[in-house]
Design a protein around this nucleic acid. Structure first.
Lengths: 224, 224
DNA sequence: CTTCAACTATAAGTATGTTCATAATAAGCC
DNA sequence: GGCTTATTATGAACATACTTATAGTTGAAG
């Protein structure tokens, strides 16, 4: 899956690329409207993430030109939170969706997923690890007949741990991915949630453990 | 858009049909697994909402048979909340998504929308009424440079009011659609939220009013 | 044994949703 | 028009869920 990121703020552009690469998307980055148009017109992308406030041509114009040239690539527009939104109202008619900055990585990924979903593709977001099952669409952690509901942050962290079962996740990783790239959450926030998660894993009698590797991070481990 | 509802609990089946018809979907209802298969095999549906616990053949079997017969219609499975979910884990591989009962109409509609979305179709959920703009994907109510965030219930009610701009919505309607078909919320719940909404409309200096029609319901009105 | 990272209980903060009591308002009646 | 009554409006209290912050405890490595 190929994604074009159009964003002049380098820090954000890199963060976006990072987030997408980790989810096995391919991502290219350009920093202004002219390049955006060049790259976009190639038609090789499955999605274009397009900031509105960019040099040379703004996002609206890029979207408009692409559509005029019969490029049907889905466009996810990014707007600043304080931007006057009636401008948006009338103008973003080339976009398929948009979101306001700043945003949490998960929100971005959900939208990217929706926009790149192919007909017939399964939505169910259910994962197994060790002896438990985690249903992301209902945020329910189950083992046998026991279930608990996970709240948002617990669920995000558990999903991360499951997705990265083979590598050790650092607290910084977790903060960046769950709290957001510009969050100021501290490491203890992560520790607290890890603690909540362990309690719930324990509650459903799972034999899976969240192992802490000192000074490095966390990893799921399946004792059994 | 054609939807097949497979649900033996009549009350729920009717509620589902109601909800869908109001959103301009076409909906047929059948009450058991045999009929589900007959109807489903016709291939005329864009979506099948399939309860698991139904007479003759359960939902899993229906889904499996459909897929075996090359029917690619998206399937949204319904499960009871207390159903043992590891059964689900292994078996629902014919389904595209599923949700647990009971659910709020909006959750259903969101999933239906996702499953029936066509490539290139716009997701942006933004509505204008009178002088304000409401962005459903960020739950933001805006007029000019002023914005407020609406919480879930406020947003749902406002969406309802906008969508039904020409008719008067009764409190019962609102309860059914926002709180759910089996909710026991009272009319004052609605009144309270209407009050919150008016305060927020006022905060952004909108000249739009939520007009109360005594003994009947509410309607948006655009003074200006 | 000491030290530092990790752990966890608990409290405080924030957002949301519900309920209750009372105030305001409109409609019907004299 | 005033009076009565039913309905709606609203502030405040209450309840709950989630998140963050504080601080003391535990435990492993050196």
């Amino acid at each position: 899956m190929n994604i074009l990121i159009v964003e002049d703020e380098k820090r954000l552009a890199n963060a976006l690329k990072q987030i997408l690469l980790e989810q096995k998307y391919m991502a290219d980055v350009v920093y202004d409207g002219n390049d955006a148009l060049d790259y976009g017109l190639s038609g090789i992308y499955d999605l274009i993430i397009l900031d509105i406030m960019i040099p040379y041509r703004d996002g609206y114009e890029v979207a408009y030109e692409l559509r005029k040239n019969k490029i049907e690539t889905p466009i996810l527009m990014l707007t600043a939170k304080d931007a006057v939104s009636d401008k948006v109202t009338g103008l973003n008619r080339g976009a398929d969706d948009y979101m306001t900055k700043p945003f949490a990585p998960e929100e971005l990924l959900a939208r990217v997923k929706a926009l790149t979903r192919r007909r017939g593709e399964v939505i169910i977001d259910e994962a197994d690890f060790g002896d438990f099952n985690f249903n992301a669409s209902t945020s329910t952690l189950t083992k046998g007949s026991k279930s608990v509901h996970l709240n948002f942050k617990e669920a995000e962290i558990l999903k991360l741990l499951i997705a990265n079962r083979d590598i050790i996740l650092s607290k910084e990783d977790i903060i960046t991915k769950v709290w957001g790239y510009d969050s100021d959450a501290g490491s203890n926030n992560v520790e607290a949630y890890i603690s909540f998660l362990r309690r719930k894993l324990n509650f459903v009698n799972s034999s899976t453990e969240i192992k802490a590797i000192k000074k490095v991070g966390y990893r799921l481990e399946n004792k059994g």
